[in-house]
Design a protein around this nucleic acid. Structure first.
Length: 491
RNA sequence: GGCGCGUUCGUUCAGCGGUUAGGACGCCGGCCUCUCACGCCGGUAACAGGGGUUCGAGUCCCCUACGCGCUACCA
């Protein structure tokens, strides 16, 4: 196809509607715009598509911005940073759209329509019944100038529709889909301006992309059916259309449209769980183009290194929380100590408030015990909490280890007054020494101790846990377990 | 129903007329190991179906099926 090389500088935009939480698909679109801008140079605009007041949710715009910031995406121009093409909220640009509509009508690219919602309903129902295409029947398009004059004089409410051509085929060149053609006889005459004067998304998007000098429109595939109409608007107004790139949709694991209710659907949920933005970004970028080379960096800037829109396939991609978790766990394992602590702070405050008084070094040492087996920050802190505040030891498992009593007694003696440095390696040596004296090794040696101090039979290396909780707590738990077993025996 | 887009292992991508159809994640097995995880080694598994074109088709064309999107005075 023709898009073998994309050239900058470019102007791109992310245009969310403030109607709810940012979801994974939205973030992916924003990310692609950001990455293309970074790799070719230019500006990224944040434009608020808030022309539909009824569906607007207060605070949604702020939360979307906050999620974008969290993921590392920043804008040159936008609703909150301003810029040369302000305002960047469509609700404040109504006049601009009305000017475009006037021009469009004058050039024959649009016409007023006085049909009532009831009549429109009837047309739709009839079309559905008869299996005909559900399109506007063009009634008002065929009005004579006199009839029009009359209706205008009566000041009856009217909308403005695009006058789609009757013949001809609209061909869209798309960077990802390549070539898409729409036969004009199948096109509708969509509403561009509502009866209250506000624009619809088709119009507002086209006008803004032109006025804001946007060169590449990168958006979700759900917009594909609107593209021929926007292309038509550009043609009627003699504007140069932008390059189009329609991103395949993200599907959930059941192959349905990814919804906010799906696992990991919203960015807010991912943040609550302690996913790392770098892992999320990397996963989102890899969907549709395969794995990134292992040497590729994690931060958002290095994601621009090999970023090309033409690498992406045209098919839908399945967003799998399992895959994201594995990517996140991989990054978590590589996370440097200082970042580890910084990123964990909110979760420590929530789950282990007592750590607020801990020294940085102690936090690093503690988190690193569970770092390797955790999938995200919340999971990691919960695992740490599990070691610090274990459930009751599983007393019944004593039956599995007839030597447990003797072993725990010996361990208490060995580690009680012995001059054993309370450090993992020394503890390990001491445990092995005890085992040797009793003729125990391997599972028979470690499992009863592990059960006594953690209540479970798996987890990080035992000596590391011992070091983490400290000598007195370690001995206390051993003693408690031994006592618990004894009590059970006396029943 | 109409229009548009899509369809290679379970998932995610390679493949761009001739390959034992490859990698990664998952899964299974082994090694390591006190356990789990990590790491390393090995294995499992796919061209939706049917017609063409061609000496030869996962690769090009057509049809069917399936999936998804749009079909609002939503975005």
């Amino acid at each position: 196809m023709t898009f073998t090389t994309l050239e900058g500088p470019i102007r791109v935009r992310f245009a969310p509607s403030p109607t709810g939480e940012l979801h994974a698909g939205g973030l992916r679109t924003a990310l692609f715009n950001y990455l293309l801008k970074r790799s070719l140079g230019g500006q990224l605009i944040l434009r608020l598509e808030d022309t539909d007041l009824e569906r607007e949710i207060p605070g949604a715009a702020e939360r979307i911005m906050d999620d974008l910031t969290w993921s590392g995406i920043s804008f040159e121009e936008g609703a909150s940073e301003g810029g040369p093409y302000a305002p960047y909220s469509q609700s404040e640009r109504t006049g601009l759209y009305q000017e475009a509509v006037a021009e469009l009508i004058e050039r024959g690219g649009a016409y007023r329509c006085w049909c009532t919602p009831q009549r429109l309903d009837e047309i739709r129902n009839r079309a559905r019944r008869e299996g005909a295409p559900p399109r506007y029947d063009g009634h008002c398009r065929r009005l004579t100038p006199d009839e029009r004059e009359q209706l205008i004089k009566q000041s009856r409410p009217s909308v403005v529709r695009l006058a789609s051509p009757e013949t001809d085929t609209i061909v869209i060149k798309d960077i990802i889909k390549e070539r898409i053609s729409f036969r004009s006889r199948h096109l509708d005459d969509p509403i561009l301006q509502r009866s209250d004067g506000r624009p619809t998304a088709i119009l507002a998007g086209a006008v803004d992309d032109h006025l804001m000098q946007v060169t590449y429109v990168i958006r979700g595939e759900e917009w594909l059916p609107s593209t021929p109409y926007q292309e038509l608007i550009y043609r009627f107004l003699n504007w140069k259309p932008p390059h189009w790139a329609h991103l395949p949709l993200l599907l959930n694991e059941q192959r349905g449209k990814l919804a906010k209710r799906d696992p990991g659907g919203t960015i807010a949920e991912l943040r609550r769980d302690g996913f790392l933005p770098e892992a999320l970004n990397r996963y989102l970028v890899s969907l549709g183009r395969g794995n990134l080379p292992p040497e590729q960096g994690w931060d958002i800037e290095s994601l621009t290194d090999n970023f090309t829109l033409t690498d992406y396939r045209a098919g839908d991609a399945i967003y799998s929380l399992t895959a994201l978790r594995s990517e996140n766990a991989r990054l978590l394992r590589q996370l440097p100590e200082t970042k580890l602590v910084a990123r964990s702070r909110p979760f420590l405050a929530e789950i282990l408030p007592e750590t607020s008084s801990w020294e940085e070094a102690r936090l690093v040492a503690s988190l690193s015990v569970v770092q390797g087996e955790s999938v995200h920050l919340r999971d990691m802190v919960e695992r740490l909490a599990g070691l610090l505040h274990p459930p009751e030891a599983a007393a019944h498992l004593r039956r599995e280890f007839p030597t447990a009593d003797r072993l725990l007694q010996a361990i208490m003696e060995e580690l009680h007054d012995q001059p054993v440095t309370w450090e993992a390696d020394a503890i390990k040596t001491a445990i092995n020494r005890t085992g040797k004296a009793l003729g125990l090794s391997g599972r028979n040696l470690f499992a009863p101790i592990r059960l006594a101090i953690t209540g479970t039979d798996h987890g990080p290396e035992l000596p590391r846990i011992a070091e983490l909780i400290g000598r007195s707590e370690f001995l206390r738990r051993i003693e408690a377990a031994a006592a618990g077993w004894k009590a059970e025996e006396n029943l």
